[in-house]
Design a binder for these strands. Structure first.
Length: 392
RNA sequence: GGAGCGGUAGUUCAGCUGGUUAGAACGCUGCCCUGUCAAGGCAGAGGUCGCGGGUUCGAGUCCCGUCCGCUCCG
């Protein structure tokens, strides 16, 4: 049996845990935040930056990389790792999110999804099998099942349909994965399995929008299929935060304790603390890079729109508590100026800072779980982040 | 000295033959962004239409005068 995930430490007060995911490209310490590199690049950053931050896992996107540069190029390059020179682990999203985000450009059937390329309008077809095949060609370490992500809001009927087809596709993804990704490996230990880190991992994705019963059914059916990790999909699409938290909390009851739980597309610093507390191990989010490009910084004292007028003459560091390449050297006024002047470096510095901020936040979270101070640290962080006075 | 063109938001300009609360872009102020179609999106502030008369029910728009700028001719 392949134990790709091990739990190292548990929080005495909450469901939070510290763990390790063994991938073909190194160990990933959890809870982890993975920056999103849709097109084989974390926007404005280079591998050197990610390495310097100690990042162990990044995302790539099947749909985007399939369209450009194309699977042929990826294969000739020897896979995405080699292509972009990334030595760490890569998780590829299956393109399921694009089923949602490219709503106008696709048509769903039982067999799969017909997409029109957002680049040149050409027609393409993704089946669960094809999504897996492409992810294998990319050389992904953690593959995601091809799912249908319904929008918010959506009716219970729509949510049910999306959830049911996602489950059926999960079976097909798993079959395709087992056929192509797991050639019988000689095993001198005689246990008929691999050692940790020798196998690629295919995660299942739960759906069900914000309907608890659908969520339950989705989760239980996927658990039945026995994936090495489970993702919570279709959340943080605009639904009330309380609903998101409720869906996470409920899902934790149905998911096996000994597998990594991945909350897709989240999040904000508050979301990360709250979700880890409930037992989430993995995150990814475009927020640090997208907001970075748009001039919003995460800081220890809350969000900061660096383009705002008051920063014109503020020569203090963006976040005094931060030691990233931005904060260690440049002032708010300078970054403000770079944004106003449309200098590309502004987006890079802000993205770098935001990614560093979340990565360091996760490190702090892991350490506090291990030290048994999670609850205290969370409270302290949120007090400062929300700019409230510490309780006396 | 003469002729022509032009003066409308901070800036560059739209406003057909006169007709509701004068528009755009950029700039400015702020908010937003959650498995990236995103160097993006939304909202807001800002103008006694150079000035003074006149015609008209009604003038940024037509007429007269005047000031300023540009171009050309002397």
């Amino acid at each position: 049996m392949n134990r790709s995930f091990e739990i190292v430490k548990r929080c005495p007060d909450t469901k939070a845990r510290v763990g390790l995911i063994h991938t073909c490209h190194g160990v990933v310490e959890t809870p982890v935040f993975a920056p999103v590199g849709t097109q084989g690049a974390v926007k404005t950053l280079f591998c050197e930056d990610l390495e310097k931050l100690g990042i162990q896992l990044i995302l790539g996107n099947t749909y985007h990389l399939y369209l450009r540069p194309g699977v042929d190029v990826m294969e000739k390059a020897g896979g995405l790792h080699s292509f972009m020179t990334w030595k760490g682990a890569i998780l590829t999203d299956s393109g399921g999110y694009q089923v949602f985000s490219l709503e106008q450009l696709r048509r769903i059937s039982e067999e799969g999804v017909e997409f029109r390329s957002h680049i040149d309008g050409t027609l393409h077809f993704f089946s669960p099998e094809k999504a897996v095949e492409i992810q294998l060609a990319l050389g992904s370490d953690i593959l995601m099942c091809f799912d249908v992500c319904p929008p918010f809001p959506c009716t219970e009927d729509q949510a049910r349909q999306a959830m049911e087809i996602t489950t059926r596709w999960a079976k097909r993804c798993k079959a395709a994965f087992e056929q192509n990704a797991l050639p019988p490996a000689p095993n001198p230990e005689g246990e008929g399995g691999r050692r940790p880190g020798e196998a690629k991992l295919l995660y299942g994705i739960t759906q069900g929008a914000i309907y608890p019963e659908l969520r339950r059914q989705s989760t239980l059916e996927l658990v039945e299929l026995d994936f090495p990790g489970y993702a919570l999909g279709g959340l943080s699409l605009g639904e009330p935060r309380s609903a998101t938290l409720e869906m996470i909390q409920r899902s934790m009851e149905w998911l096996p304790d000994d597998k990594p739980r991945y909350l897709m597309g989240v999040g904000t610093p508050e979301d990360l603390w709250d979700s880890v507390e409930m037992g989430i191990d993995q995150f990814d989010c475009v927020l640090p890079t997208r907001n970075g490009r748009n001039g919003q910084l995460f800081t220890s004292q809350g969000k900061l729109n660096i383009k705002n007028a008051p920063f014109r003459e503020d020569f203090s560091p963006p976040d005094p508590a931060c030691d990233c390449d931005l904060c260690a050297r440049y002032s708010r006024a300078y970054l403000h100026h770079l944004f106003r002047a449309g200098e590309l470096g502004a987006m890079r510095l802000a993205s770098l800072h935001n990614v560093a901020f979340l990565v360091k936040l996760m490190r702090k979270i892991r350490q506090s779980i291990a030290a048994g101070t999670f609850v205290k640290e969370k409270k302290a962080f949120l007090n400062a982040y929300r700019n409230e006075k510490a309780p006396v």
